[in-house]
Write a protein that binds this DNA or RNA. Structure first.
Lengths: 190, 190, 190, 190
DNA sequence: ACCTAACCGAGACGGTACGTCCTGTCTTCCG
DNA sequence: CGGAAGACAGGACGTACCGTCTCGGTTAGGT
């Protein structure tokens, strides 16, 4: 019997998984990434340290999972007849997802990606590339309609948009608002 | 005048200072920022740990000093009659300064700035702001000549240029080449 | 019943405990107390420093445990009909336990007890008091038989005996031999 | 030939010497021997560290000088016709010199003597031996008068007296009072 | 009056060890 | 057999002192 993929033993506790993701996110807001520890996450979640290490390589990957789940839910991929508006909509929605809490997480993840190359790879694969693909699709549709500025390739256009986004996130703290979305749209399209 | 600035006691050792900056830079290349330690820097430099901590808060500030010294020496501020060419020249020189070794240091510093807010403040003050000021001056002179794209403010233009620079540095690894400098120039100036 | 004393989690490693006690004792003989360090003990024992600090407050307490174990095993409490002989026997056995290696440890412990009052309290409670009690019992039995010198109380007699012992240990280096045991016996009893 | 020991140059500052001895003694009382540091002594005395190290090997030797000066001044060597009374007088005066402040210093010195063998040698030579000589002289005069207990040598008698003294100082904290002086006199003389 | 020598306070230097914190792994018992 | 509890080996942290080495400046002969 035992059948298909059903293995013996206790199943992974969905409750623990949620508790760990939540604890990591909460603690990040409370103490900051520098003082966020796996021990602290486990303690807050009411689990053992091993339960964290069993499912994630370290604290950064816990946050990464928390953030990607959030992004998957909150950022749509617009596809209407007005391809210029689609771009503006995408950027506005992307910026709107950058709440103070997700902002903290994103900055921490980008930092960790610089420090730990192996995590950097996972970070790019899991979060950065999918976002590039999404924006790239919107930009491509604009180009097909002849709206893209002629000296820009898709990749470079994406670099400019996400460059501005991350630069404000990481370096200046200037807001990710509708004004920036509008400005980027005009810069990329014309 | 004023005087009295002469304090008693042994002077700071310039030899140790140089040895520490050099050791930090070398070790960063050899083992990466994650495994760069103050202990390691001191050992390599042939100094005591306390001599590092006496003059710098931590390993990030050592690297910051090493990098700012480099930037001060290698990036000129062009001021010719051709204000469009000045922008292209500035960006090209900036990108050319991003050698593999300085690139590693910059990525580490930006990462540390996210993780340690106090260092972040010093990083912005010491490295980011001066670079923004420099590019801002070049952009301003272009605007005075009516060359800047009309929908761009100086700050936003700087955001776009440095955004692209840092995004490629931190996220994609795409090259900082003359092509990018040319493209940015055309995007900003129109 | 028996109550709940069973906790989850890994048990204390008896192997590490023994290794630490042994390493401390060996290193004391090799380098002396001044250059005996917790780091050295842990390294020699093949454990982490934290495993020492988890169970002992510092290097002195490690030695104290090693010495008390030794004393417990090697010094009997004689109780025969000849109460004068009992005293002589007790002193002789006590002196015989002062091998070069235990002597080193005892001198270090007495020194540390002077320097660190909190350790001093533990030292008295763990090693000094029990030894006083033991000798006190022998002296008491002698007094009940009318053998004790009339002007001596039990406490004072004990002070004289242990005073001579420790003074030779700490100050003069003169031997703790049978002659001293005999002489103390005659001085205390008569 | 030239003159004996007359050298050119600035003379040793008696003021600094006194300030250092006083600072060491005061700080010992305030913070205890464990937290007494050469840096602290120099700072309190208003001198440089080098001035301490120029004249003393370390903090223990500073205290040793302070204590021996005290002993030299306060403990007489009685020499009357009543040789039994002389012994009692000597012990009483010795015990009286053990004020709380000198007691702290003596305990610290004996501790340091165990830990640092080189200092131990200086300690014995400077403080312990002279005191033994003094008591030995008194005991010898008693023996010449036929007053010493017959089974005691001079050395052993001195061991018993100083043994009780140091044992109470280091181990039990019981008082060094006239009762102990009287009791030792009776025990040694018979 | 200058020279040279030894001292002085101050404080940076190369080092060592401290005691703490966290990592990632490993037992142990419970459900 | 997953999971909590928690001990384990390892290693960096930032601090405190050690004893030494410059500094500029003072105080004394010797010439």
């Amino acid at each position: 019997m035992s059948g298909s993929g059903v293995r013996p033993g206790r199943r992974r506790s969905e409750e623990s998984r949620q508790a760990i993701l939540g604890a990591a996110f909460d603690l990040l807001g409370e103490v900051g990434y520098a003082r966020l520890t796996v021990e602290g996450i486990a303690a807050r979640a009411g689990t053992g340290k091993q339960t964290v290490y069993r499912w994630w390589p370290g604290k950064a990957d816990v946050l990464l999972e928390a953030v990607t789940a959030y992004a998957r839910e909150h950022i749509p991929l617009p596809e209407t007849a007005d391809r210029a508006a689609d771009l503006r909509t995408f950027l506005t929605a992307t910026f709107a997802a950058a709440t103070p809490r997700t902002t903290d997480a994103l900055r921490a993840l980008m930092a960790e990606a610089q420090i730990d190359p192996a995590f950097g790879e996972r970070f790019r694969e899991t979060l950065l590339h999918p976002r590039r693909e999404a924006l790239g699709a919107v930009v491509d549709r604009a180009r097909e309609a002849g709206l893209l500025a002629p000296h820009l390739t898709t990749d470079t256009a994406v670099d400019l948009a996400f460059g501005a986004l991350w630069y404000r996130l990481l370096a200046t703290g200037r807001p990710l608002d509708d004004e920036l979305a509008e400005l980027l749209t005009r810069t990329l399209l014309r």
